[in-house]
């Protein structure tokens, strides 16, 4: 069966993909909001443009996290085996890493939404 996902990589780094996206999204939101509030009307943009930008990077981040979660789900064998995957075998190591990555992706997904939530309610930046 051909799968649309890229080929499987065996690396510990894939574990951190979703938290890294979460961290970058957090930085992007807070840094752009801070710059915008310190310099209102930067490059002729209003607050709505800032909210649109945050919405854009949020959707992009969520998409990246979903992809990371799909890859992790595949690594976990699409949920065919039950945790805890604690046998000292290569297979269990891979399954454990896939499962942990999937859980981290879930956490990052919720965290990215919580980070972006203020932009839904705050409509201006007054000093």
């Amino acid at each position: 069966m051909r799968h649309p996902l890229p080929p499987e990589i065996e690396s510990l780094w894939t574990l951190f993909t979703a938290p890294v996206v979460w961290a970058l999204h957090f930085l992007a939101c807070y840094v752009t909001a801070a710059i915008f509030c310190a310099k209102p009307g930067l490059l002729g943009n209003d607050f709505f443009a800032l909210r649109t930008l945050i919405a854009g990077i949020t959707l992009l981040s969520l998409a990246m996290i979903v992809v990371a979660a799909l890859l992790a789900w595949r690594q976990w064998g699409f949920g065919t085996g039950d945790p805890p995957h604690d046998d000292p075998t290569r297979r269990d190591r891979l399954l454990f890493q896939g499962y942990a990555t999937l859980l981290l992706s879930g956490l990052s997904f919720v965290a990215v939404i919580f980070t972006a939530l203020p932009a839904v309610f705050l409509t201006e930046c007054l000093r």
Binding site: V110, I113, F114, L117, P118, V120, F121, L122, T123
Partner: peptide, 14 residues
């Protein structure tokens, strides 16, 4: 619960 509380508090902020 956290999402609801966060949304309520943020909605209240302005």
């Amino acid at each position: 619960v956290l999402a609801a509380l966060l949304a309520y508090a943020l909605w209240l902020m302005p």
